[in-house]
Nucleic acid binder design. Sequence first.
DNA 1: ACCTGAACACCGTTCAAGT
DNA 2: ACCTGAACACCGTTCAAGT
Lengths: 239, 239
Amino acid sequence: MATRRTQALSRDRIVAAAIELLDAAGEGGLTFRALSERLATGPGAIYWHVANKEELLAAATDGVVASAVGAGIREVALGLFTATEEHPWLATQLALQLSRRPWGSVAPRIFEAIGREVEALGVPAGSRFTATSALVHYILGAAGQNAVNTRAPVAVGDREEFLDGVATAWEALDPAEYPFTRAVAAEVRGHDDREQFLGGIELVLAGITAVHGLAPRHPGTGLESGRGRNPGPRRGAGG
Amino acid sequence: MATRRTQALSRDRIVAAAIELLDAAGEGGLTFRALSERLATGPGAIYWHVANKEELLAAATDGVVASAVGAGIREVALGLFTATEEHPWLATQLALQLSRRPWGSVAPRIFEAIGREVEALGVPAGSRFTATSALVHYILGAAGQNAVNTRAPVAVGDREEFLDGVATAWEALDPAEYPFTRAVAAEVRGHDDREQFLGGIELVLAGITAVHGLAPRHPGTGLESGRGRNPGPRRGAGG
DNA sequence: ACCTGAACACCGTTCAAGT
DNA sequence: ACCTGAACACCGTTCAAGT
């Protein structure tokens, strides 16, 4: 596994190695010493290609996001969701990069993909920013929750154990103070993260279409369709 | 304000000092050495009351959240939002605590307040977990975005400058690849974070009521002034 | 231009020793 | 029980010196 120094050092090779280290050992596993050992060089050499650790983490995050994000809104969302499963450290970094470096390439990439879909949905121009932001915020918040443990990669069994631990802790809460949380605690145990995540997306989309009197689009993602009330004033779906 | 050692060390005093350090100098400002200096003791003494830095950050986060969270859904959301303005480090910590320590007291506190409101809204029992999670995820994602810079406290002028920088960066993006992001870039500049945040909450709530065929509830919280009572009538879709 | 690796100024955490 | 503070095993980052 020790890489031979057949190639010269490059930013791309450094970022790739950083992603490998993060995947293998979590955020704590990425150090300049471990990185330089893996690249068969000294810690100082990395600084020729990368300004500092913050930039390195930004580049690693962007690298994963770039290859994970698809075209439509559900592809973007699911892509990010799946990516946080494969790279548990990504969730924290997503939140960090988006809030600390919105001028970077991660934020526009996500924003653009979601925004186009919002536009295609027929949301009027003046409301697109708010609607897109709401979706992006939901996706980021949910992706963040999806990261079970950013210290180390998690096996499937660990995940079940983790959820069981959460459910048990919630069930042990004070009944007087936490009636609701106790009531839903059992649902934590077996719930499907992906399904719940997609359900949330449909909820936000339903809100966007309802508020603007648009015809709800339904992708057939397994969520029961909202029947009943007709949502507000009709307005041409637009061209 | 160097604290004289009039009182004995205690967990509460340590956590309070940690919050002060975080507020004053951001996440980087909280070190056991700086903390022990402020408390007029040695770094080792802190470990008698607190297991490690992770637990200290969890306690600091919980302390702020506990005093920020109100009763209703909009009080909870606005409370968290305002708290992240006053304590910029909180946004990152919220995301971290919720994803890494959902068995802690931060997660149930937020979950409970939102969940009760979802219940009161008339959402059927089987859908409450999903609806509550969607709201919590949105709130956390949005609160995370609200943290402009977790390194140091931000003045009002800095915030405008920051938003202007983001807008400028977005306007400089490739027109072929980022048409949507470029189109909304100008809106970044002057936008009201709080208004946009509350608008997102209404969007998600509208989705929840629409999907379940419930009558949308009127918010009753003024969007323009955070603390003022007596909201004006809202535009948009009505029943 | 690119890389080396020792050195600097820090960290979180521990622990024998004190009161 | 509670506190002290030196010591340990690390960090990210720098920089004179090499190629």
